[in-house]
């Protein structure tokens, strides 16, 4: 994994709009954005309806993932290129998801939908028709996913990175400021966690900072790259962004995303919690 294999530029996308092996997928928090306009040829995945099992609050099963990709004409050898709004939060979550199920060639558009729009590049409303395929997923790779008991056992041992805003970390806000203030039962953070907001890894136009800047960001904040790192946020999307930075761009292999995140941790009974900066 590296910047070269995980990230593509808006120029690359423009050059590959007609490439039959490339499947563009938009994944947004605000799912109405796709209907408003999307990159030519792109399909969309709904982060909740397509990618969450509503009954047991988990990732969808391997069989459902296979059905989703098959229905959308994605093959095991497709080059999947993800992008979305909100600085690619939900697109990086989908990227992590594709990696969980072992897809070989998945990439992210640097800057996502925002950079595409800020550059004034064209969006279309036409929804492409794709011929169904027969996709076969691998068993889940849980080496990039953290579970709550692992997180609790990691306090004071591994790097735990809270990628939410400082106000959420301190316990002043329960959710990002563009959402109603709801989330875990209590506010605060996991004791010992370093607060390195996801946004510090991104430039204003949504592109990622350079690898030197990124490594400096985490090291200065006290992350020891020789140890395992767990990233978390509120519901696992922003932490997927920071997981992408650490695991894909900085090529650190011992990094997991705790997708249960604060919504799960902040609702547990009797676990240690810290508040304040």
């Amino acid at each position: 994994m590296s910047r070269a294999t995980s990230l593509v530029s808006t120029d690359w996308v423009q050059e590959n709009l007609s490439n039959p092996n490339v499947v563009l997928i938009e994944v947004d928090e605000d799912t109405s954005l796709y209907e408003k306009g999307h990159i030519q040829g792109a399909i969309t995945f709904h982060w909740r309806e397509d990618l969450q099992d509503g009954l047991i609050r988990d990732l969808i099963s391997k069989e459902k993932f296979e059905a989703l990709l098959s229905k959308n004409g994605i093959s095991n050898d497709s080059t999947v290129v993800l992008y979305g709004g909100n600085n690619n939060w939900f697109a990086t979550y989908a990227f992590w998801y594709f990696k969980i199920y072992g897809h070989q060639d998945v990439r992210l558009i640097d800057g996502g939908r925002k950079l595409w729009e800020l550059k004034g590049l064209p969006l279309v409303t036409e929804v492409p028709t794709r011929t169904a395929s027969r996709y076969v997923a691998k068993e889940r790779d849980n080496s990039i996913r953290a579970f709550r008991d692992q997180v609790i056992a990691s306090i004071g041992i591994k790097n735990i990175v809270d990628v939410r805003s400082p106000a959420e970390f301190a316990g002043e806000l329960a959710a990002p400021a563009h959402l109603p203030q709801e989330g875990g039962q209590i506010k605060g953070h996991i004791p010992g966690a370093k607060n390195i907001p996801w946004s510090k890894a991104a430039n204003e136009d949504g592109t990622f900072k350079s690898n030197d800047e990124l490594a400096d960001l985490y090291k200065t904040a006290g992350v020891d790259f020789s140890k395992e790192t767990i990233a978390y946020c509120r519901i696992g999307e922003r932490s997927a962004f920071s997981w992408f930075v650490l695991h894909e761009l900085l090529d650190l292999q011992n990094v997991t995303n705790y997708d249960g995140s604060w919504t799960e941790y902040g609702s547990l009974v009797g676990v240690p919690v810290a508040v304040g900066a």
Binding site: N87, S165, A167, P176, H178, S199
Partner: peptide, 25 residues
């Protein structure tokens, strides 16, 4: 939306009417 220290807190796209909303502190 940036906080008192200029730290990024949230970002939203405008809707079809050009509108946006944050729930801040």
């Amino acid at each position: 939306l940036l906080d008192l220290n200029g730290e990024f807190t949230a970002e939203v796209p405008t809707n079809l009417e050009g509108q946006f909303r944050f729930f801040a502190a």
